[in-house]
């Protein structure tokens, strides 16, 4: 492989990894705060893409406005999902909440098929993102350059919220000890709701950028990325935001690079994530950045 192809693949890996990272963060934040795997997260990602699609095609919004509306709607949807499917089960066994999450996932997918139709839709072309950019012999779509840049900006904002704001402090407190957080006069329900909102906003952004890069929408498009990003979150150490980012990028790189270097394995592309998951869990059951927490009594 020549150096040009390598750089071509490197940008592909960077943009895919960015998308995985954005979605993986939603899993890890919700898990961190509720110890719940939000199985519907991949479907929230799908909705983000559809919201943007309809905002542009049915409501004729300019793409910038459409994206903001779609991202906002996805955030509200995530908060509504928590309110309806998870909050009523706050004091129930974990397994009930998990089943509710699986149910919500199926419900969203199937209502999606009814409302949006099962046939794939093509996302309208947006010139800014569909331009072919050339660097010497490398050529790529401009969206592949936008994705990593936007992702880095969003990660910066997210880490600032979590580490520097009062809301972020409340999130970290709630994720450590629910009752102790209540004793600090923290509104636990509001904090959980905000966490879902933020995670869903990231999924919405991911969904929109995904369809810019792979411009086909269908109501089941969230399943595979959802599963892989869940794996990315586990690989990085679930509950840990940096871990989710690491896991997302790692998965993106491995997927793209194995296919690039060993094209005969292309058919197994979706299997790499699972193999990586098994390997990492065997070597480091808490994930790469997960800590084996010991509690002092």
């Amino acid at each position: 492989m020549d150096i040009a192809t390598f750089f071509q693949q490197l940008t592909n890996a960077l943009s895919l990894g960015s998308l995985y990272a954005l979605i993986a963060i939603g899993y890890t934040m919700v898990y961190g705060i509720l110890r719940l795997i939000n199985f519907a997260h991949g479907d929230v990602f799908m909705l983000g893409a559809y919201f943007a699609f309809y905002a542009i095609t049915a409501f004729a919004m300019p793409w910038g406005v459409a994206f903001i509306v779609a991202i906002g709607l996805t955030g509200v949807f995530g908060m509504g999902l928590e309110r309806l499917a998870y909050r009523p089960l706050r004091d129930s066994p974990k397994i009930s909440v998990m089943i509710s999450a699986i149910g919500a996932s199926f419900l969203i997918e199937n209502v999606g098929i009814v409302l949006f139709g099962g046939r794939p839709k093509s996302f309208p072309s947006i010139a800014l993102f569909d331009t072919v950019v050339r660097f010497g012999s490398i050529s790529m779509l401009s969206v592949s350059l936008f994705i990593p840049v936007i992702t880095v900006v969003i990660l910066g904002i997210l880490l600032w919220i979590v580490n520097k704001t009062k809301t972020g402090l409340a999130m970290r407190a709630v994720s450590t000890d629910l009752d102790a957080a209540r004793l600090m006069a923290i509104d636990v329900n509001r904090t959980i709701s905000l966490t879902f909102g933020i995670g869903s906003i990231l999924a919405g952004i991911g969904g929109i950028m995904w369809t810019m890069k792979y411009p086909q929408l269908n109501p089941l498009m969230g399943i595979m990325p959802g599963l892989k990003c869940f794996i990315a979150a586990v690989i990085g150490g679930i509950g840990n935001i940096q871990g989710a980012v690491l896991g997302g990028f790692l998965l993106g790189f491995i997927e793209i690079m194995i296919v690039a270097f060993l094209p005969e394995l292309t058919g197994y592309r979706d299997a790499f994530a699972f193999v990586l998951l098994i390997v990492v869990l065997l070597a480091k059951p808490d994930g790469l950045l997960g800590k084996n927490q010991t509690v002092k009594v």
Binding site: K166, L169, A170, R172, A173, T176, D177, D179, A180, A181, L183, M184, A185, I186, Q293, V295, K296
Partner: peptide, 19 residues
């Protein structure tokens, strides 16, 4: 005690003053 072990002393105190 139920202090927040993964947070610093100052962050724990800030949580005490959360309201």
């Amino acid at each position: 005690r139920r202090i927040f072990p993964n947070l610093t002393t100052e962050e724990n105190l800030a949580l005490g003053a959360f309201a």
